[in-house]
């Protein structure tokens, strides 16, 4: 399927995620984050956080729900059988703590072909309940032999 570059800039509905303390602990345990600020509320408060703070890469947990509908958008026609997650970037601002509500909006940042491969680049912008940006993600998915 040829790339429809008119879809660059397309934005998807906001995704809301409520950050739970146990979810942060579960994620921290899975990736090996042992810093007490990710596990213990008083340790987090001593370091100036409102509550147990999420490790930076917890960004994938609260923003994936916004990226899903973009990946499965029939207007983009991604061939999943040949898709690879090629690259990922996050830029972090305000820390994310237990009790926060994070809203993420995904959009199509770029669509292009190179060396016989199709590149689908999405952006996610996540903000907290105070309207402050917490993370901005760039998700690059590559379809081989598009």
């Amino acid at each position: 399927m040829a790339l429809d570059t008119s879809k660059i800039g397309k934005t998807y509905p906001p995704h809301e995620y409520e950050v739970g303390r146990e979810k942060i602990r579960e994620y921290a345990n899975a990736v090996g984050e042992t810093n007490p600020v990710h596990h213990d509320r008083s340790a987090a408060r001593e370091q100036g956080f409102r509550d147990v703070v999420a490790p930076p890469m917890f960004a994938v947990v609260y923003s994936t729900g916004a990226i899903g509908p973009a990946l499965f958008d029939p207007e983009l026609g991604i061939n999943f059988a040949r898709m690879l997650h090629g690259a990922q970037e996050f830029v972090w601002s305000e820390p994310v703590c237990a009790g926060d509500t994070i809203t993420t909006v995904a959009s199509v940042k770029d669509l292009y072909e190179r060396d016989g491969m199709q590149f689908f680049v999405f952006e996610s912008v996540s903000t907290n309940q105070d309207g402050r940006e917490v993370a901005r993600g760039t998700w690059t998915n590559i379809v081989r032999g598009g």
Binding site: A87, Q88, E89, F90
Partner: peptide, 8 residues
């Protein structure tokens, strides 16, 4: 950690 970009 302010930014991290990687290639898989």
């Amino acid at each position: 950690l302010k930014r991290l970009s990687v290639q898989f």
